[in-house]
Design a protein around this nucleic acid. Structure first.
Lengths: 155, 155
DNA sequence: CGACGAGGCGCAATTCTGTTGCAATTTATG
DNA sequence: CATAAATTGCAACAGAATTGCGCCTCGTCG
């Protein structure tokens, strides 16, 4: 199934930017920030149009978004015809480089809320350092003098 | 143990704003946004000073922060000498009014990350509507025409 | 007591993310 | 081709948070 067909199915006009963004997110398979998406699009793409594109795609359910603990949104798309991965899993965010990846196959836990609260959804973000940045960091620690992985804070 | 003693213990000067903020957070017992804290301080308090105060308090471990999915930070303090509540629990965020509350007694789940990833911490935010906003919303739905709780998105 | 210096504070300006308004353009459709 | 609705591009705006920098304050030491 092509990107164009996905768009037509949900009633969105298959414009260039939508096709590009959708393909990009499908191919990437991990949540990308607005900036990361823009970098990968042809130069001169309008920021606002991209925001709106991502919102449209989200509205029709082709894309979902996760907020990293760095405060910016990541957008992610999994082919609807693909098994698994409809969302609902934790995400890992690298605090050094901003890389976010899905942690599929691990359902989000049930969370009990006090009576009277209405739950619309939930988000579990695990943060730390990705392998690349971890390697870089420990190299710096060992040789010159970089940061060390002592942080173990939560909540 | 007084707020002043907590500050001295960690080597922070017990300035007025720090004492006020700490007391405020202790008393409130739930995560407050920067704005909510400022509202509760005496008028004319400098925004930046408050940011720095919150950061200092966080740095020494007296305060921790949670990012709501509205993109702004909440700051929360639990008396160190108090049992339980050292963090490490989910939080609920009301999307209508921005209220955030701790959901203690529910530990965060263990999350497995692929080899090579370093985990510094994790955050589970459940969002929806608090009882007050829920009541308001359903009243509007029934009479005139308000929003309805159809959203059930995740990830 | 008085000077010094680190730690704090207050103000202005900036950055970063994301949103809104609006006019111009494109597209589906008859 | 005419039309209306969807989409785009640009400018301006909004809110959270940060940075730079000079001034003030408090503890310390001579």
């Amino acid at each position: 199934m092509t990107e164009r067909e996905f768009l037509e199915e949900v009633g969105l006009r298959p414009t260039e930017i939508r096709l590009d963004v959708l393909k990009l997110l499908f191919d990437e398979g991990r949540p990308l920030s607005h900036g990361e998406v823009q970098e990968r699009l042809k130069e001169g793409t309008d920021r606002v149009t991209l925001y709106r594109t991502l919102s449209s795609l989200e509205r029709v359910g082709l894309v979902h978004r996760v907020l990293g603990i760095d405060g910016s949104w990541r957008f992610c798309a999994h082919r609807p015809d693909h098994p698994g991965c409809p969302g609902n899993h934790p995400h890992f965010l690298c605090l050094d480089c901003g890389l976010m990846v899905c942690l599929p196959d691990q359902p989000l836990p049930r969370v009990d809320v006090p009576p009277g609260y209405f739950v619309a959804g939930k988000q579990l973000v695990v943060y730390g350092r990705c392998p690349a940045c971890e390697a870089k960091a420990s190299k710096e620690t060992n040789s010159s003098g970089g940061k060390d992985p002592e942080e173990e804070d939560d909540d």
